[in-house]
Write a protein that binds this DNA or RNA. Structure first.
Lengths: 129, 129
DNA sequence: TATCACATGTGTGTTTTACATGTAGGAAGG
DNA sequence: CCTTCCTACATGTAAAACACACATGTGATA
């Protein structure tokens, strides 16, 4: 328990001792990333996992959570899936973007644009001071 | 319990029914925002609370969490505080940025810059498709 | 036959955020 | 004097998002 090494009250994701880990990630960013990848081409989870870092920077998405997100997307009709064996190796579950998922991607893009503008505002104010 | 109204498995912050709430916020963004405001001028929590929305867009920061963040910052020597009465109204706890806090702000700015670039990459790939 | 890479998952704890509530000083009005 | 409101600071707790560990099975290859 307590992998961080047992500090007292509030240990905020330390990278080095006495050093707050600051990564500035966008919440649930793997979600729009998945939708974008699936817009480009229907494919399966493991491949998405390998394609994600190019979009997210360093954030290699956790496998377990990736599959959970994919199934959540499917539950809400944003993607569909079908099993595909035949190729060498284990069966793959191929995900495809639906029209609804496409719309969600558009919303994400709009939100990410706003987010980028907020960051610009912040950074300008930072540099100006 | 379950204020959202008892949906099944995975309710992902719905804004309207059948509609995923997509806000694309940066994690812990209130933290660099606080540090930036305090770099400009030492002040107290309640005033920071009112100044924050201008930086964060819509995200009016939750009061309770704001004060918790401030005390966490203080615990790690990133800000200092002193009580100040004398003015009308209840006593205020005035926070001031330390040199260490200033350095943390610089790190945040670097991380936020990377984050902005990632968003640009994403958005370009989005528009290109 | 043991091991490795591919592929899909579940379990569970930690961190971060959201929502509700509590305490208290002082001004304004009845 | 009593109530109500605004300021200001704070705690309690549940939900959401995330990280880490592990389980399962296929097929290739050493």
């Amino acid at each position: 328990m307590r992998p961080g090494g047992g500090r007292g009250a509030r240990c905020r994701r330390m990278v080095r001792p006495g050093h707050w880990g600051v990564r500035a990630r966008v919440e649930r960013f793997s979600e729009p990333a998945l939708l974008l990848l699936l817009r480009e081409r229907a494919t399966h989870g493991y491949e998405l996992l390998e394609a994600l870092p190019a979009l997210t920077g360093e954030a290699r998405v956790d496998m377990g959570n990736l599959y959970r997100v994919l199934r959540a997307l499917e539950e809400d009709g944003l993607v569909t899936s079908r099993w595909e064996s035949g190729d060498p190796g284990p069966a793959k579950r191929i995900y495809e973007l639906t029209e609804q998922g496409r719309r969600l991607l558009d919303e994400w893009a709009a939100a990410l644009l706003r987010s980028r503008d907020r960051l610009d505002t912040f950074l300008q104010r930072y540099e100006g001071g």
